[in-house]
Simulated assay, not measured.
Amino acid sequence: MLAPAVAGVDGSVENLAAAEWASREAARRVRPLCLVHAWNRPPRKGTGPCAAVGRRCPARRALRQAEDRVRRTCPGLEAEAEPVEEPAADALLHAAERAGLLVLGSRGLSGFTGFVVGSVALGVVAPATLPVVLVSAGEEASDERLAADDGSPSTRTGYQDVALGLDLGDPCGEVIEFAFEAAQPSGARLHVGHALQEPSQLGLGPGAIGLVNGPEQADEWLGFLDAVIKVWRDRYPWIEVVGTVTEGCARSVPACAASGAGPLVVGRRTTERPAGPRTGPVSHAVVQHVGRPVAVVPHE
């Protein structure tokens, strides 16, 4: 059996949307789904078994709410619910050890916005060793589909593009492969984007692309992009791929995120830092500013 997709739930609208998105993705990838709710409320002095039961009630309620949403979304999906009495970030990281994908609400399980310091999202994404997808509140099945001919939302049309923000200075196979795998089950097009930065004359080295003419420089980088992803294009010939190179900063939101509402895939370097694991500037910017599911893929 394939490793399950794991969704963290706490009853918030963000995490209910995440559970629903995870169920659709698990069904597309023919994986089981595991819903995890964690709580860490120490019992008060002098309390007995009744207090312990009381602490479990919110967990069961949150899981039941998420299970109902999953059943309505994917009635035939194999799903299990798992309440865990443990700090949320620890519980999710432990669940991730046996998972193939981890899905969270983009505002975090503690109600913090985005990736602010101390949020559960930061505590999970930064040290995670598997891809983590963050889903915002209000995400619905029709959002990942193309609009109908009359412009109205639909759940019967083709899928929106999967987007990949690619750093051509440090292309990583794990990140590229995840993007192709994300596009494969739905038959979506893959949009690969790179932000072209103004080269420094001091930084140019052997083989560096340093053409003065902007359009020609973009064409050179686009050819480099095609060469980088050629192995995966040959491996997934049925996936339509479009590449774009635009001016911008590597820390800015990738241009390929501007169109469509399918998942946006970005990489996160796992190199140890003195201050501990971090999400990285690109991942941080993307999660703060992109209104679509964001997959953060760790790599060395």
Rank of each mutant, 00 (worst) to 15 (best):
residue 118 G to W: 01
residue 272 E to F: 00
residue 110 S to T: 14
residue 284 H to S: 11
residue 23 S to C: 12
residue 61 R to F: 10
residue 104 L to I: 05
residue 102 L to S: 07
residue 276 G to A: 09
residue 200 S to G: 09
residue 245 V to C: 04
residue 268 R to V: 08
residue 214 G to E: 11
residue 223 G to C: 13
residue 227 A to K: 04
residue 48 G to R: 00
residue 229 I to W: 02
residue 167 D to C: 11
residue 109 L to W: 00
residue 261 A to S: 15
residue 289 H to V: 03
residue 67 E to V: 12
residue 60 R to N: 04
residue 271 T to M: 10
residue 267 G to R: 00
residue 195 A to S: 15
residue 84 V to T: 11
residue 57 C to N: 00
residue 82 E to M: 06
residue 175 V to M: 08
residue 30 V to E: 11
residue 237 P to Q: 11
residue 141 A to N: 07
residue 273 R to D: 12
residue 9 V to I: 10
residue 53 V to T: 10
residue 124 V to R: 02
residue 195 A to L: 10
residue 236 Y to L: 01
residue 17 A to N: 04
residue 182 A to L: 14
residue 29 R to S: 14
residue 81 A to G: 12
residue 239 I to K: 05
residue 180 F to Y: 15
residue 257 A to P: 07
residue 246 T to K: 13
residue 184 Q to T: 04
residue 121 A to P: 02
residue 135 V to D: 01
residue 158 G to H: 15
residue 2 L to S: 14
residue 39 W to V: 00
residue 112 F to W: 06
residue 262 G to Q: 04
residue 291 G to I: 00
residue 57 C to K: 13
residue 73 T to G: 11
residue 182 A to C: 10
residue 255 A to R: 07
residue 251 R to D: 12
residue 66 A to M: 11
residue 201 Q to S: 13
residue 134 L to A: 09
residue 211 L to G: 01
residue 203 G to N: 06
residue 41 R to I: 10
residue 96 A to P: 01
residue 96 A to E: 06
residue 214 G to D: 07
residue 62 A to M: 06
residue 105 G to M: 01
residue 8 G to V: 08
residue 51 A to I: 07
residue 214 G to I: 12
residue 239 I to H: 08
residue 3 A to L: 14
residue 107 R to S: 06
residue 22 A to R: 03
residue 77 L to R: 02
residue 250 A to M: 04
residue 228 V to D: 06
residue 170 D to K: 12
residue 268 R to H: 08
residue 20 E to C: 15
residue 133 V to L: 05
residue 261 A to Y: 05
residue 130 L to G: 08
residue 184 Q to R: 14
residue 222 L to F: 01
residue 219 D to K: 11
residue 286 V to L: 03
residue 111 G to D: 13
residue 181 E to C: 08
residue 251 R to H: 13
residue 149 D to W: 11
residue 142 S to D: 09
residue 107 R to C: 02
residue 2 L to W: 01
residue 296 V to D: 05
residue 215 P to Y: 02
residue 210 G to W: 06
residue 28 R to V: 00
residue 39 W to G: 07
residue 295 A to H: 06
residue 113 T to I: 13
residue 26 A to E: 05
residue 277 P to M: 04
residue 67 E to K: 14
residue 69 R to M: 14
residue 38 A to V: 02
